[in-house]
Structure formats: structure tokens, C-alpha cells
């Protein structure tokens, strides 16, 4: 059967890659993840019933693949340390030294979040998913999503200092 998700996938590539980079922090790992997610999406396109939620559906595939991979690494006794390989080019590319410093501090504050808070922050404040779509990606009740997200945002700002947060 012919699927029409090809063009949607191509359009979504820059965002899927951003999301994968924010999870994996290493460009090669992220690219591999995006490719695997696209292949998974093509194979399971029949389960996508609502075009409007294509983004949420794709982010869910990327996320699940990533955590599957982490789990598999862990069962093999390996640990993938995201802080070792940090391909956050956005920070390196920042020309103003003060701002680069701030961005580095913000990245560190986000890293210090518990995993469940950090991933919500990424989905809503970076990928701009609605609370509802984020709830769908993480398979959580929307109330949990909102309280967890509010906690994450507050925690980052407190960690960073509200003055710094204001500048960013």
C-alpha cells in the first residue's frame, strides 16, 4: 500500500533531528536515531490515523527508540554518557561570550533536571508541542504533564537565577 507520509517525514527532518540531538547529544547517534525512527514510521504508518498528530506520533517513535537503545546498552553493562559527547553547536556558535556562558549554564541546569522533567521541557518548550500532544508522546495524563512541566521550568530558572533567565 502506498503511504503518503514520505513528504511529511522530509518536512519534519530538521525538527526530528533537533529532538534526537537534544536526547542523544551526539550528532552521529542522533542521525542514526532519526533514520531508524523514519524507517519505523514508514513500516507502521497504518497506525497513524490523524494527520494533525503526525508530530506527536513521530516524536513518540524517536523517544521510544532512544529509550529502547539506552535500555539495551544498560543491559549490556554499557552506559551512554550524554555529557561526554556534547554536540550542542548552538552554544558553540554563539558569538557573544556572555551569552555563550549563559547558554552553557542553562544547558547545565537542564541537564540537572530529573529525566522525566527534562523530556517534558524539551517537548513543550523546544519542540512546541501542546500539553496534550506531549501527554500523548509520553503516555501520561495531562494533569501530570502540566504539573511536571511547571516544576521543570521553575527549577531551571531558579537554578540559573531569574536574572539570567530573563536575558535568555
Amino acid at each position: 500500500m502506498t503511504t503518503a507520509i514520505g513528504p511529511l517525514l522530509i518536512d519534519a527532518l530538521p525538527r526530528l533531528r533537533r529532538y534526537a540531538l537534544s536526547l542523544a547529544r551526539a550528532a552521529d547517534v542522533a542521525d542514526d536515531l532519526v533514520q531508524a525512527a523514519c524507517e519505523r514510521a514508514l513500516a507502521t504508518a497504518a497506525t497513524l490515523d490523524d494527520r494533525q498528530r503526525f508530530d506527536a506520533w513521530m516524536f513518540r517513535i524517536v523517544r521510544n527508540l532512544w529509550y529502547d537503545r539506552l535500555r539495551r546498552l544498560r543491559t549490556r553493562g554499557e552506559e551512554f554518557d550524554v555529557t561526554v559527547r556534547d554536540d550542542l553547536v548552538a552554544i558553540e556558535g554563539e558569538k557573544l561570550p556572555e551569552r555563550r556562558l549563559l547558554l552553557g549554564q542553562a544547558a547545565a541546569a537542564i541537564d540537572r533536571l530529573p529525566d522525566d522533567q527534562r523530556e517534558l521541557l524539551l517537548l513543550v518548550c523546544v519542540e512546541e508541542l501542546s500539553y496534550r500532544d506531549a501527554a500523548e508522546v509520553l503516555q501520561l495524563p495531562i494533569g501530570t504533564v502540566m504539573s511536571r512541566l511547571a516544576r521543570a521550568r521553575r527549577r531551571v530558572a531558579e537554578d540559573l537565577g531569574v536574572e539570567s533567565g530573563r536575558v535568555l
Partner: peptide
């Protein structure tokens, strides 16, 4: 303001990656 700043910080760090 804290809640707004926390969200903006995440956007500032990660949004340009796209």
C-alpha cells in the same frame, strides 16, 4: 517570571539545533 524564564532558557539552548 520563573516559569516563563525556565521555558525560554530551554528554547534558547535547543531551538537553534533545528
Amino acid at each position: 517570571e520563573l516559569i516563563v524564564a525556565g521555558g525560554k532558557a530551554a528554547g534558547a539552548v535547543f531551538a537553534p539545533l533545528a
